[in-house]
Design a protein around this nucleic acid. Structure first.
Lengths: 200, 200
DNA sequence: CCTACCGATCGGTAGG
DNA sequence: CCTACCGATCGGTAGG
């Protein structure tokens, strides 16, 4: 109980930072902005965190791990490509809608990481993207997906499922699960071999 | 010929700004960064431009007009929804790949516009989005598209065709036209009524 | 287009 | 967690 205050305070700072970094961007958010929301002085923030950069790193790597650990479970499964892709999309949407602010920072503000951390982060990103790449390749081997260009395909999938972070508001007509299903249908219909076009 | 220098200089500044704003973001780019690339002093920039904000405004509204004037032509045509959508996607990809830096600023940095300009800009953005919305609605009336949620659908289309600005590099295997065709097929297959699922 | 400069604000520290 | 403060850097101006 007695260490809880300090722990919560750091977490609180990160939560507020996620929100402001999403809203205005990392560079446009000052430590004084953060402090104002938390109703303390800017200097007091440094009792709980080391630097502005540290906050960004915490957010980016935390979300990176969330996305990647969900992908790891899919990798080790033995489903077919369509089921894997469906599950990967669902995981992505659930994590994203479950932490909209953090996800927005993960997706948009990572480029402001300092060089060393940026390199580390890019490895995590690539790892996640490769998860999708492997699923798509598996679908090609299983002869259920028709792929023209693997990079274009994977990047298109990622755009489709990521950029709702820009406009999604909780409490709408569709639940995250429903959105995920819609997007999975949308994407899979675009990847499948189309008998009408290919006559087979 | 004698006014050309000044004209070109301003345009040069905007070009460099587009490139740096894309690479680092508007807030992380300083006037001294711009000046360095142009091999002049920061103060000298102000002989050609009024402010940093003015540069951002010029870029955002220029691209906004490009996107919207292409959409206007489609609006006034009498094609069916599928042809219109295909053409809208092609226009979008052509403009985007034709000015990658400007498009990136248009898509990612507009939120740093000052309030009044931001309001103006959001009207242009909404107008462009509504262009896609009307096409999708037309497709519903023509009974060729099956739409669950119009906002989700339109935003998904826009994500799919916009975020290649993040990774597209000219000179790759696929030409902009080929990419546009691929994405149009991808999107339209996701919107079409699927006889396999709906039995009609 | 440059030199010289300015007021404001930034991330962060010292010391309590 | 606060007061007091600092060096650096920002967008921008004056005057040539």
């Amino acid at each position: 109980m007695h260490t809880e205050n300090k722990f919560n305070r750091k977490e609180q700072i990160i939560q507020v930072a996620e929100s402001l970094f999403k809203e205005r961007g990392f560079m446009a958010t000052t430590m004084r902005d953060l402090a104002k929301v938390l109703k303390i002085e800017a200097a007091s923030l440094y009792s709980h965190i080391q630097s502005k950069d540290e906050i960004l790193e915490t957010i980016c790597f935390r979300l990176g791990q969330e996305f990647n650990s969900a992908m790891d479970k899919i990798k080790s499964s033995h489903e077919n490509a369509e089921d894997k892709l469906r599950r990967a999309i669902l995981n992505h949407i659930i994590i994203l809608t479950g932490d909209l602010n953090g996800s927005a920072v993960f997706l948009k503000e990572w480029r402001h990481l300092k060089r060393e951390k940026l390199n580390e982060f890019n490895i995590e990103r690539k790892k996640y993207e490769n998860g999708f790449k492997e699923i798509v390749k598996q679908g090609e081997r299983e002869n259920i997906f028709s792929i023209v260009d693997i990079t274009l395909t994977v990047q298109t999938i990622l755009s489709t499922i990521s950029w709702l972070v820009e406009w999604y508001k909780p409490g709408g007509k569709m639940s995250p699960g429903e959105i995920a299903n819609y997007l999975a249908d949308f994407i899979i219909s675009g990847l499948k071999k189309n008998p009408a076009h290919r006559n087979e």
